[in-house]
Design a binder for these strands. Structure first.
Ligand SMILES: [Mg+2]
Ligand SMILES: [Mg+2]
Length: 196
RNA sequence: ACAUCU
DNA sequence: AGATGT
């Protein structure tokens, strides 16, 4: 038989350090997104539990429910695209674009974030905006959508909207932080179209 | 590789 | 299995 092990549960029903697999399993079974690992000594387990930075998939805290979450949907990529924003806490849809004839996933993710900033500025709200698109968040920060989509008759509409959005970003300020939605730890963003 | 879209 | 992006 192997030597005694210690079990750290970072995310489970009750996070903590457990001395038996049975106890650990109790905290972890049926808990979506559970994070746990065994250690050969209590010292190592304690260090790992406290040093949340050196965990397998380090994660701290959760998301802010008082926020807007945006997401894009498409039928093919490139293809017809749309975006929408929801109130994270309730999943209530607060805005939705009817769709563009042809665009890319990243263009629609970008337009969704910008629309959220415009909407929240109008509401005089500084609540955060969540997006699961690292690409689109980067484009908003640079105020430049670096899409490779060729502009033709079908994509002209979205390209014009992209230019309007870039111009709006350059001409306005906002107080809303834009955060990356951590899909791996939190599941699909609340604005997701559930097509996958 | 990472983050997305089908 | 394919495309959009850093
Ligand atoms: Mg998305
Ligand atoms: Mg989605």
């Amino acid at each position: 038989m192997a030597k005694k092990k210690w079990y750290v549960v970072w995310r489970g029903k009750k996070p903590g350090i457990y001395s038996t697999w049975a106890e650990c399993e109790k905290q972890v079974k049926g808990f979506k997104g559970a994070k746990f690992k065994s250690f050969p000594s209590y010292e190592e387990a304690e260090a790992a539990f406290n040093n949340s930075t050196l965990k397998p998939e380090a994660e701290n805290g959760s998301y802010i429910t008082e926020s807007i979450s945006v997401d894009a949907g498409s039928h093919g990529n490139p293809g017809p695209v749309e975006y929408r924003g929801v109130y994270t806490k309730t999943e209530e849809i607060v805005f939705a674009h009817p769709g563009f004839k042809k665009g890319t996933n990243n263009m629609a993710e970008f337009l969704g974030i910008v629309h959220a900033l415009q909407y929240l500025k109008e509401q005089k709200s500084a609540m955060p905006v969540y997006s699961d698109s690292a690409t689109a968040i980067g484009w908003v920060e640079k105020k430049k959508a670096n899409s490779t989509l060729v502009e033709d008759a079908d994509s002209r509409e979205i390209w014009e909207e992209i230019r309007r959005a870039e111009n709006w970003l350059k001409e306005h300020t906002w107080d809303n932080p834009i955060y990356k939605w951590d899909t791996n730890n939190w599941g699909e963003i609340k604005a997701d179209y559930q097509r996958k």
